[in-house]
Design a protein around this nucleic acid. Structure first.
Lengths: 354, 354
DNA sequence: CACAATTGCTCAATCGATTGAACGCTCAAT
DNA sequence: ATTGAGCGTTCAATCGATTGAGCAATTGTG
């Protein structure tokens, strides 16, 4: 049984296809209630569903949104970004067409062409971690950059506010009484924006209360639990008076490594060492013991923002700057006051990171 | 500047639109090389890209595939399944339209309608964990079920071979010399297929070598690291002669909990206790110390299989049974021989789980 | 009562491609 | 000279909807 067309409905309702179209699209100002009723009934009995392809051809709007990203598979963040985008699209009656290019520029160009050929109503270009990306050739104007910044500018973009996130993480530790706070950063040839900005936030928070940053407390290791273990090793080997009482980690995986290294030395988290992560990866942060206090990446909100801008229901900032979405602090149990052995006398005012 | 249409190309090349269509679609049997050249040149100069909407209307094929799933966000597996499906779709010149219903049946019905309206060439219904699902109303015939089995049958489906996976996991432990092997299962009101089948595989592997399963070694706890810790607590509190020397876990998260509990009791993995997980979650299995030996879920292959069947380039089994994809063993470092304190004399033949 | 305005609906063009049938031309065979 | 075949190209219908213009019947106005 072939799908019912609008003409089938028209025939059953004994009206023209125009009338059917008018009624079914709610342009009923000039249609009598009786006719409307007949049309709706007819549509129901023949089981009519509009053909969006035909409609799209006529209206030039396909109610479809293209999302091309470098990689879906390798990061667990993808899901939340996609989910945010997807939900927003659905709320506005749109469907999401997803293309994973695997980072291959050739595939990317094909994808952009294919999506343009599909007459998508809007396009989103997403990276799975915050960085600067080259603008693929042929990208339509108005494409929204998600979790990345176009190298050339000229497109709306949305990224996490990593600087504020880093600042908030460190403020949290300062408020808990810590003064000697380390930053376990990642070790990459060209550090991503996230790394730099979180570091800036770290310095900012220290500066706010007059702590002079100790370079020995900024260590760089591989972005993994193993890297975290190594970082903790270096930090905890410092002489007692320079050893940190708290570590802010570039991400939760490194934080997990810090836990392991601390436990091996018989140190308690947070009793002897406070830890703050970044990313709020459920599988890591929530499963650690004690559960990890961390900074969440606002992936769902960013996905939503990008979608809304792509659909034109929200206007991007006019200054061509990325839209920054705050990274909320997720309070769990890995932050406490510094150990008594290394007390920070109350009310002693600004001090330096020794 | 509006997009170039086929008629623009025709005008520049001084031929009819028919000829342009013929040339650009490779039906060049009857077109002179000179004309072909002119057409291609013209297409290039006006920057023509075919309008897939118009083509779809005429040909009734949209080169588009619908994938509806219950949840994208909450599981890290989604990515690999999507990536597999996406890659296969791309290889066959198709685009993937993704809908996440959040498990809401109303949204699901809308999604199915919307995708049907988009005239997708095929449809995939995916669950993010292996289970039996109700068939949504209005689902087109030929829809492929991915990582789930339709309650009513009648549709092709693909799922992991959890039974074989469980068997392989336990065989591995048996081959390492273990006889007292526990299964740390999940504790759910209606256990998912995966739980049951892995358990069957566990029993099968034991039976193969004549070990009588000890019910005390089959424990059920919450599916999390905390659940794993609890499971390990129960198992390690058994009297020495009934205590397991190895644990097969329903998933990697529970395995992570086993590690923690073991370490707290001063037990070494794998020196005192061998552990095998399931899922091969990178963030867990790869990051543990020692790295976890586990059974991988073949998400990418399943996604690919589903896509190929949906596109008709691969034919599903005719017996209406789910297509089983094997779960490969991922050898890491959490399995070793049983501790000397609980030796299994070599060559002593089949024995029972005490 | 004549005419205009309003109401309720339909006509027909249109979106941009695809495709089977047909057309005009050339050339070879009868 | 006529016919027929082969070749290269075009004609025109078609896919299934949307939509501005238009038409007939009804109602309102002077």
């Amino acid at each position: 049984m072939p799908r019912a067309r609008i003409s089938d409905v028209a025939q059953v309702a004994r009206v023209s296809t125009s009338t059917v179209s008018l009624v079914l699209n709610g342009r009923t100002e000039r249609i009598s209630p009786a006719t409307q009723e007949r049309v709706r009934e007819a549509a129901a009995t023949v089981g009519y569903t509009p053909n969006f392809v035909a409609r799209g051809l006529r209206t030039q709007r396909t109610r479809t949104l293209g999302l091309v990203s470098d990689q879906i598979a390798t990061t667990p963040f993808a899901g939340r970004m996609l989910a945010g985008a997807q939900d927003a699209a659905r709320e506005h009656g749109h469907l999401l067409i997803l293309v994973d290019t695997g980072g291959d520029p050739g595939v990317e160009a094909d994808a952009v062409r294919a999506l343009a050929g599909q007459q998508v109503d809007g396009m989103i270009y997403a990276a799975m971690w915050h960085r600067v990306v080259d603008v693929p050739a042929g990208l339509p104007a108005g494409t929204v950059f998600l979790d990345c910044r176009p190298a050339t500018g000229g497109y709306p973009s949305v990224v996490p506010d990593d600087r504020a996130g880093g600042r908030d993480a460190v403020r949290l530790l300062i408020e808990a009484g810590h003064r000697r706070i380390a930053y376990a950063d990642i070790d990459e040839d060209q550090p991503p924006i996230a790394s730099e900005e979180r570091h800036e936030g770290y310095l900012e928070a220290l500066a706010e209360v007059g702590i002079t940053p100790d370079p020995a407390l900024h260590v760089r290791y591989e972005s993994s639990a193993a890297g975290g273990r190594a970082a903790a090793g270096e930090l905890l080997d410092l002489p007692a008076d320079r050893r940190p009482t708290a570590v802010f980690c570039f991400n939760d995986r490194m934080a997990a490594g810090i836990y392991v290294a601390a436990h091996r030395r018989g140190l308690d988290v947070p009793g002897d060492l406070s830890v703050v992560g970044y990313d709020d990866q459920q599988l890591v942060a929530g499963e650690l013991d004690p559960p990890l206090t961390t900074i969440a990446l606002p992936h769902a909100q960013m996905g939503r923002w990008a979608t809304e801008v792509a659909l034109g229901v929200r206007t991007p900032p006019e200054d061509d700057q990325p839209h920054l979405v705050p990274c909320p602090v997720v309070h769990r149990d890995s932050v406490g006051p510094p150990p008594a052995a290394a007390p920070t006398p109350a009310g002693d005012g600004p001090r330096t990171n020794p």
